[in-house]
Design a protein around this nucleic acid. Structure first.
Lengths: 329, 329
DNA sequence: ATGAAAGCGCTAACAG
DNA sequence: CTGTTAGCGCTTTCAT
């Protein structure tokens, strides 16, 4: 007998709906005998509370939105994985919407979140987003927002980010320590704040050391990274190390390395910023500085929970980096 | 003025709630002038219907559940990606829950789906699931179920699957055509129905050709595949081709190939069953038979939509395979 | 063309 | 200890 309701139980037992409601919640007011009768009947009727009704009443859906450019991406995956794991403990579920890096869809999605009265939204901005007015509406609707990874340049919002600066610095220092002199550094889309932060930090370290040659290149996709690498490794003076800002770039560079049968680390060293999966699929494994989507997810959850508790001040939080020795440098 | 309601609009305009409701829906009964007034006010008040209330009333949440072992998996990703893309067109959203390959969590998750009165659930069984009684309850609750990939062995359910048989056959035939004589065939967890189907089909083709030597091995994870490959490639008589049942296995095998500096395809050929991303990251690119999570997602959606329209008979549907030449065979 | 009323399933203030 | 009542926001007969 599926889809039993409080009303049905009340009718069978000839008591009031509110008594049933309270009994099921183990309310102290209700007598033990009534409680038992109710509980038993609920059991046999396989009663399950209607979350939709509860939501309407309580004005709390216990659902978080997660908006990402695309779910087909290792980094966002592990973020989502962490968030799902974490919020489930508090009885929340996730409503995941992809923006496809399209600001118009992004706005659409926010509307869906509003209409569904989600308890909060985790958002990673699309590459194309420049105007964040649409996000103000969420504030007005009292829906807390926690931005992650691609975050707006605006102190009015809560943001959790990778420690891009720190990570890029660690990688740069590792390169210097290994006495690399002729480095190819491949970064991603220059539009992105994460690219800028990583680039600035990397450059800063490198500039302290004038004896090192660094070529800076930018690739939006794996294929571009591959052809950039191809170009550099065909020079008479091959790079003695490559820095890859992301997994996507690493994958492109490594394809070139395989194509040209370049020996790592003998002929050239490789270091990447990565979440950790891709560095492990190559031999030798790639040395990387961890930028963990998983830990970012956990941090974002912490922050979200604080928002729910009514924290007012917005902050920008960072996930620290970790150096992981592979064997490629 | 966020969170306007029909009631609020009605009060301001001094008309009834039902009129407002109708006006907003462009109901023919309502006069043009009233409609206009209502629409305008709704606009300025930034009225947005409360989906929760609508759901309660209509008993239709317009949310689908998606239950997968883990979201951190390329194949499920592309499945989810396709589903999200597709159902959005019909105004549905997704509630994704991970089972972590734990049957107990699976049951928990079903409960969450029931309580939230989702319109249907897409489910990929966990590796460990043997008893599917818990899924019967969903039927009783009138929540349609569409199983995908790891499906129960039970005709009472709707299932959409990869054409495992066909795909394995295509790969086997490609190996024969290339005159490979000493093949290492690595499959996944023997418990899984998908492993069985692929293995059976592959074996059947191979057995028709007695002059070919095939070693069958099984690996639960990438690392195991790697060490299996390692073992075989250290034999005096190296395999002249490797068949990889999945991306996970391919990744493991390729790591070994890199470690031992084996030349592909000169020294050994590689062929895989894959969704297409991983084969493309190696050089030469890996020849594979496509088993697309994306297309599976689309198919699953079609089936779900039919269920919603009240189709009674359950079916098992297959996504056809496609041969993709890489250069590794 | 519009309104009143009932109800989706649940909770909680108030009353007894 | 239990019941009555009201209401969350919306849709939909049924009247008028």
């Amino acid at each position: 007998m599926a889809n039993a309701t409080l009303k049905k139980i009340a009718q069978v037992l000839d008591i009031s709906v509110s008594t049933v409601s309270r009994a099921l919640k183990n309310h102290p007011d209700i007598s033990a005998s009534t409680k038992q009768k109710v509980m038993e009947l609920a059991e046999t009727l396989e009663y399950e509370p209607n979350a939709v009704a509860v939501n309407l009443r309580s004005k709390n859906t216990k659902v978080f939105g997660v908006m990402i450019p695309s779910i087909t991406n290792n980094f966002y995956d592990s973020f989502v994985n962490a968030v799902e794991e974490e919020v489930k403990k508090a009885g929340y579920s996730l409503m995941i919407l992809q923006s496809g890096d399209d600001p118009a869809i992004e706005i659409e999605n926010l509307k869906i979140y509003r209409q569904n009265r989600v308890s909060g939204v985790f958002v990673c901005l699309s590459k194309e987003t420049t105007n964040i007015d649409a996000f103000h509406k969420m504030k007005e609707a009292n829906i807390p927002l926690v931005f992650f990874d691609k975050v707006p340049d605006n102190d009015a919002y809560d943001r959790v980010c990778l420690a891009d600066k720190e990570a890029a610095e660690m990688a740069a220092e590792a390169l210097l320590q290994k006495k690399k002199k002729n480095i190819l550094a491949v970064f991603g889309n220059t539009q992105l704040s994460i690219t800028k932060r990583r680039l600035d930090a990397f450059k800063k370290i490198m500039q302290q050391n004038t004896s090192v040659d660094v070529a800076y290149e930018f690739a939006g996709k794996s294929e571009e990274a591959e052809s950039i690498a191809q170009r550099y490794f065909q020079l008479k003076k091959m790079p003695d190390a490559v820095f890859c800002m992301s997994d996507e770039i690493l994958v492109g560079v490594m394809k070139c390395i395989q194509r040209l049968h370049i020996n790592v680390p003998a002929q050239t060293g490789i270091i990447a910023l990565s979440d950790g999966y891709f560095p492990g699929i190559y031999y030798p494994e790639i040395t990387y500085v961890e930028t963990s989507g998983y830990r970012l997810g956990k941090l974002a959850c912490e922050r979200m929970m604080e928002c729910l508790k009514g924290k007012e001040e917005t902050t920008e939080l960072f996930v620290s980096s970790r150096f992981a020795e592979g064997g490629s440098l």
